[in-house]
Nucleic acid binder design. Structure first.
Lengths: 235, 235
DNA sequence: AAGTTCCGAAACTCTGCGGTATCGTTTTCC
DNA sequence: GGAAAACGATACCGCAGAGTTTCGGAACTT
C-alpha cells in the first residue's frame, strides 16, 4: 500500500473498456503465454501472470475458475498469426522457396512459440486434450508450408514424384524445433542453409544452385557415386 | 561430481555395502528416473523418490544438496546403457548399419526414456543445465553413432566424402526426439525406415537396397532425375 | 563386546503458491 | 452527480513439498 506502480495508462485510446470484458481477456492470455515462455509451466504462478498483465490476481479469478483453464485458453488462442499458407514464396526453385520462408524478423516470435511449446510438453501427459496443441500451433503449419512447396516443385517437374515428401517436409521444422528447444542453439540462416543444401535438396536429387548467396563452402554429396559394390563385411 | 566410482566392482557386494556408498547412489538415481517417468517432473517429490528407493529422505540429502542436482545427475547417468559406440553394427552397408542400431527388444526401455524426456521438457526452460544433460544423454550419443557409421561408409567408398555428415548425422536422432517429445508418436521401426530410405540415403545418393526387409511399400526418390534444367527462376 | 558409522523412519520447520476475501479507487451507466 | 460495477492491491488461509533434525537400530571394525 505504500508504493504502487503507477498505472502506465499508455497513450492508447481504447484502453477504456471498463464495462464488459474487452481486451482485458486478451491481455491476460497474452501475459500467460509470456510467463509460460519465460519460466515454464512449472514456474508459472498466478501472481506472476497478474503482475505481468498489470492486474490484480482477483481479476484473473473473476474470469477463469482455475489456473489450468487459464492456460488452456491461452494456448488455444495461440493459433493465430500462423505461417501464411496463402502467400507462400514463389521464386521458381525449391531452394529459393524454402529459404524464402525464412523471416528474420520472426525469430523472436518463433523462439517464444517454441518455448511455450516446451512448457506445454509437460502438461500433455496430464491433459491429453492438448496433446497436439503445441505441435499443431508451431511445427505443423510450418511443415504444411514445406509440403506445399515441395508438391509445387513436383508439379513443375523440378523433383521426382517418387520423393517421400510426407517425411521430408517434416525434417526442417522438427529439427528446428528440437534445436531451439533442447539444444538451445538458435535457428539461424546458416543452419537453415545447411539443412536445405546438406539434407533436403540432396535427398531430392537436386544440387544446390551454385548461384547467388551460396553463403557456405559446403556442397552436397555428388550424384556421381560409382556403382561399385560397397565393400561388404570386413571379415 | 558426487560419486567417486572407485573400483568398478559390480555384482560383488550388492548385499550390504555399509561402509562407503557403492550401489546406493545408483539405486537412488534409478528411483529418480522411475518417478520421473511415472509422475513427471511436476509431480516428483523427494518423498516419492525416497519411498521408491526404499530409503529415508535424509539419505538422499546426505548425497545430494538439492532436488535439482539429483535430477541432473540422474539424467546424466542415463547416458549409460545407451548406444554403445564401441560395438556398432557392421553389416557392410550404411542402410543395414543404420537400421541395425534399432533394438526392438528395448521397446520398454525406450518408452521409459521417452517419458523421462517428456518430463524433462518442462524443466528445460528453467534449467539450462538440464537441457544440456537431456540432449547429451539421449541425442548426442545417438548422433555420434550415426556420424561414425556414416564416416565408415565414406571410408569404404559407399558415399561421397563431400556429404554433409555433420548435419545428416543429427537428423534422425533429433527428429526422433522431437517426435517422441512433442508429437507423442512412438519412434518405431516404420518411422526409422521412412527416415532412412526417404531422407538419409537419398541425401547421400544411395538407393535403398531393395533386398531383404523392405518392410514398407514406400520407395525413396529415384536417382533417375533427368538432367533437365529444373525450371530455373520464373522470370 | 564395544565403538563407530551409516541407515530408514518419521516428526518437524519453513517457504511458496493456489485460491479467497476485503478494501479503497476508478470507470461506466443512467 | 450518484450508484453500481469492475478494477488493482493486498492481506489472508490452507496445504503441499523442500529440506532438517532426531532417534533407534543394523552392520562393519577392532
Amino acid at each position: 500500500m505504500h508504493d504502487k506502480t503507477e498505472q502506465p495508462d499508455e497513450a492508447g485510446a481504447m484502453k477504456r473498456g471498463r464495462k464488459r470484458d474487452a481486451s482485458l481477456d486478451a491481455r491476460l492470455l497474452d501475459a500467460t503465454l509470456d510467463v509460460l515462455a519465460e519460466v515454464g509451466a512449472a514456474g508459472l504462478t498466478m501472481d506472476l501472470v497478474a503482475a505481468r498483465a498489470g492486474v490484480g490476481k482477483a481479476t484473473i479469478y473473476r474470469r477463469w475458475t482455475a489456473k489450468s483453464e487459464l492456460i488452456i485458453d491461452a494456448v488455444a488462442q495461440m493459433k493465430r498469426n500462423q505461417v501464411d499458407l496463402e502467400h507462400l514464396p514463389d521464386t521458381g526453385t525449391l531452394r529459393g522457396d524454402l529459404l524464402g520462408l525464412f523471416k528474420p524478423q520472426s525469430n523472436e516470435e518463433r523462439e517464444r512459440r517454441l518455448k511455450i511449446m516446451t512448457a506445454l510438453a509437460s502438461l500433455l501427459s496430464q491433459d491429453p486434450a492438448l496433446a497436439g496443441a503445441a505441435n499443431g500451433a508451431v511445427v505443423e503449419p510450418w511443415a504444411a508450408a514445406h509440403r506445399a512447396l515441395m508438391e509445387r516443385a513436383v508439379a513443375r517437374g523440378e523433383i521426382s514424384a517418387a520423393a517421400d515428401i510426407a517425411t521430408l517436409s517434416q525434417v526442417i521444422p522438427s529439427m528446428a524445433a528440437y534445436r531451439s528447444l533442447v539444444q538451445r542453439k538458435s535457428f539461424d540462416f546458416t543452419f537453415l542453409v545447411s539443412m536445405v543444401d546438406g539434407v533436403i535438396l540432396p535427398a531430392l536429387g537436386i544440387e544446390p544452385s551454385p548461384d547467388h548467396e551460396s553463403s557456405s563452402p559446403r556442397r552436397a554429396a555428388r550424384r556421381t557415386r560409382p556403382r561399385t559394390e560397397p565393400a561388404r563385411r570386413k571379415s
